[in-house]
């Protein structure tokens, strides 16, 4: 493995770990580790103990990532080292964080109280502009960035080496014959990924509107916009490697652009939380009124009495499905089928 790959894998693992450490703080004030708790419980000594335990387990799992990645990058074969560094390393903080969450939820359950019987909802109709932040150029910018990179590659077509270094072919082979697929494959795939992220933004119109709905959905969409920009910067920069060679990515500038974008996007929710952009201060105490028993392990929502298909997650940022509704299974099947089709197509094309 190159030094770039080792550093990138470690940075990715640590950044995901930091995100996992801050995830409980992104929950609504009315719940604590996906359990409905009395107002102000989060500040109590019992809550602080539970939170400390979560931080401890997640931190250990996060640090286990680099401890695993460093020796395997040294001693194992190239393919196996890549698989472990990029596959298992970043998974450790996620698995550790989820395990810590389930454990801490079990501890928090003894302080659970019944959700309020009163359900208050806003009668104002939401429009897309209410829940999607940023002006048009902030949304078009990432695509224009990729388009600019593709335009530059088209202009410099004759200067592109044949065969060319293709970053998406790592680690098996690093070069491909100079062809449209090899040169424009990365920016086009990235544009498609950005479009999928953009398509997630209107989902906020479909979820149950809890108190503080608009501001919270705007915050979630601001985070998605941050992800889109980071992917566009990485995609546009890395796609030029077919023209400038491997050093374009593995050199100090490439390292700064790729790792910087990754760390910036994963720390974005932390910054948003610190600056109050996740709308916790002043948010009505009465938040999610679904019964705790409907949240299996605090992560999977199954409530036959709830007509909603999309609901806000209790742990993490974003939305999840109500798996008691047939529409949720249909949607999940459609998403999985589309993903499988895309993977099969790209493998066939590659």
């Amino acid at each position: 493995m190159t030094l770039f790959d080792v550093l990138f894998a470690i940075a990715m693992t640590l950044a995901i770990g930091v995100l996992m450490l801050f995830t409980p703080a992104l929950s609504r004030g009315s719940t604590f580790f996906a359990v409905t708790v009395p107002e102000g419980f989060a500040g109590s000594p019992a809550a602080r103990d539970i939170h400390r335990r979560y931080l401890g387990i997640t931190a250990i799992a996060t640090l286990a990532g680099p401890i695993l990645i460093l020796p395997v990058s040294w001693w194992l074969s190239r393919d196996l080292a890549y698989g472990i560094a990029y596959g298992i390393g970043p998974l450790l903080p996620v698995v550790g964080g989820l395990a810590a969450f389930v454990h801490c939820r079990g501890m928090a359950l003894q302080y659970a109280r019944e959700p309020s019987a009163t359900r208050t909802v806003s009668l104002e109709r939401d429009r897309l502009v209410d829940i999607v932040p940023g002006r048009w150029w902030l949304h078009a910018g990432p695509y224009l960035l990729l388009l600019a990179a593709m335009g530059w590659l088209a202009l410099q077509w004759e200067s592109i080496p044949d065969p060319a270094f293709v970053p998406t072919r790592l680690p098996e082979g690093t070069t491909m014959a100079r062809a449209a697929f090899a040169v424009f494959g990365l920016p086009l795939t990235m544009a498609l990924t950005l479009a999928v992220c953009h398509a997630m933004m209107p989902l906020g119109l479909l979820i149950r509107r809890l108190p503080g709905h608009r501001q919270r959905v705007r915050s979630i969409n601001a985070f998605i916009l941050g992800v889109i920009w980071a992917m566009a910067v990485m995609g546009a920069y890395d796609s030029l490697a077919v023209l400038y060679g491997e050093r374009w990515i593995t050199g100090p500038v490439g390292l700064a652009v790729n790792i910087g974008s990754l760390v910036a996007v994963l720390l974005l929710p932390v910054w948003m939380l610190a600056t109050g952009r996740f709308a916790r201060p002043g948010e009505p105490a009465q938040g999610d009124r679904s019964p705790d028993s409907a949240w299996k392990l605090g992560l999977i929502y199954f409530n036959p009495d709830d007509p909603a298909v999309w609901v806000e997650k209790r742990f993490g940022v974003g939305f999840t499905l109500n798996f008691a509704r047939p529409a949720a299974w249909l949607l999940l099947t459609a998403i999985l089928a589309a993903t499988a089709a895309l993977v099969i197509w790209s493998l066939g094309a590659g």
């Binding site: 019987a117 009163t118 208050t120 009668l123």
Partner: peptide, 11 residues
């Protein structure tokens, strides 16, 4: 404040 509607499911 936008108009809001409340129901009490235990009522």
């Amino acid at each position: 404040q936008p108009p809001a509607l409340a129901v009490d499911v235990d009522s």
